[in-house]
């Protein structure tokens, strides 16, 4: 529970009870192979995750429909809480279906929404796919638009990463993401990001440089998917459960590292168990954080966003140096100083 108290945003009493319930659940699952509940909701994400099969078992009994409503955050919210108009196109040749943007209202307040959109099944996945540079440029266009008209921005993150293919590379995937990152630090409107399912690498961050980064209780956020990490570090994707554990990808861990600012509770068994209840929680979270952010002036808002990211990191200055290494350093420094001296004499 100490973890929760660190989070900047706290959402009512339901939070603690929900966490308790999930703790209970997790302990029962721990018996299987030590993976936490967090992976439970993720089991469907990529069926290729061999290591996760065991934990994903409870999901298999209720396969697709569970994620169905939930993986369409925007469409879903459209029905429930928001009056939503989708806006299309990056004005540069393509409308990327993997990123959905548009204007909507919650309780009379007008917001700019943008989010990653994964498919619900293979067919939709092929159609939607992963975001290409076009998607990020569409989002960028909407950010400028929102900034111009003063709409606060709400982003929904749910992607394993930006699309990795040669076409996207040629179109400047890196450049598109980089520009989004830089631009988001200059937007004069409040930004709240919510990690719905998974947020992977630069592809997630490209719409995630927010004043507040909230995560659903069972969502994950990572620098590289556990499989990729395992493949890089241990040269085999089989080590992915180990990598998932080491990488600290869960909402609780990220709150502790001050990357995430708050956790949105999910019902027992995951968000898909009761999409309606979850969307009400999301709505509540959005309104609460927006209220807080809208009290700030423009300058303060930009500063707040910058400082949120500036404080992240784990490093140490002036460390104790081994005596052996120290002597090496000293020696090197002395010779360097000597050579500079010589040069200055020669010059």
């Amino acid at each position: 529970m100490a973890l929760i108290s660190q989070s900047a945003v706290t959402f009512s009493g339901t939070l603690s009870s929900a966490t308790l319930a999930s703790d209970l659940l997790r302990s029962s699952i721990n018996g299987v192979n030590g993976m936490s509940l967090k992976t439970l909701g993720r089991g469907h994400v990529s069926p290729r995750r061999k290591g996760f099969n065991i934990t994903a078992k409870p999901l298999k009994e209720k396969p697709k429909p569970v994620t169905l409503e939930f993986e369409k955050p925007l469409m879903d919210l459209q029905k429930r809480i928001i009056d939503f108009v989708e806006l299309h196109g990056d004005r540069a040749g393509y409308d990327d279906p993997a990123v959905v943007t548009g204007i909507g209202t919650i309780d009379g307040g007008r917001f700019m929404f943008m989010g990653h959109q994964k498919g619900r099944n293979t067919k939709e996945n092929i159609q939607r796919g992963m975001p290409t540079p076009h998607g990020y440029r569409k989002a960028l266009r909407m950010m400028y638009y929102a900034d111009h008209h003063g709409f606060p921005i709400v982003t929904f993150i749910d992607t394993p990463g930006a699309f990795a293919d040669l076409k996207s590379e040629e179109l400047g995937q890196g450049e598109a993401i980089a520009h989004n990152l830089r631009t988001m630090f200059g937007l004069k409107v409040p930004i709240v990001s919510i990690v719905m399912g998974e947020g992977g690498s630069g592809g997630a961050l490209a719409i995630g440089c927010a004043n507040k980064l909230l995560m659903l209780e069972n969502a994950v956020f990572y620098v590289a998917s556990p499989e990729a990490c395992a493949a890089i570090l241990w040269k085999t994707a089989k080590a992915s459960p180990k990598a998932a554990e080491k990488l600290r990808i869960t909402a609780n861990e990220l709150c502790r590292l001050q990357i995430a600012d708050g956790i949105i509770p999910e019902p027992l068994g995951g968000a898909h168990a009761d999409p309606h209840w979850t969307s009400v929680q999301i709505k509540k979270a959005i309104l609460e954080s927006m209220d807080e952010l809208q009290k700030m002036g423009t300058e303060e808002l930009l500063r707040h966003r910058k400082l949120k990211f500036c404080k992240i990191g784990g490093f140490q200055e002036g460390p104790p140096v081994d005596p052996e290494k120290k002597s090496q350093h000293e020696k090197k420094r002395r010779t360097e100083a000597g050579s500079y001296f010589r040069q200055s004499v020669a010059g």
Binding site: L247, L257, I312
Partner: peptide
């Protein structure tokens, strides 16, 4: 990889600067 999401956030940090 060894610093997990913290390394990812460095992208945002440098971009903000």
């Amino acid at each position: 990889m060894q610093e997990g999401s913290l390394s990812l956030m460095q992208m945002a940090k440098i971009s903000s600067a």
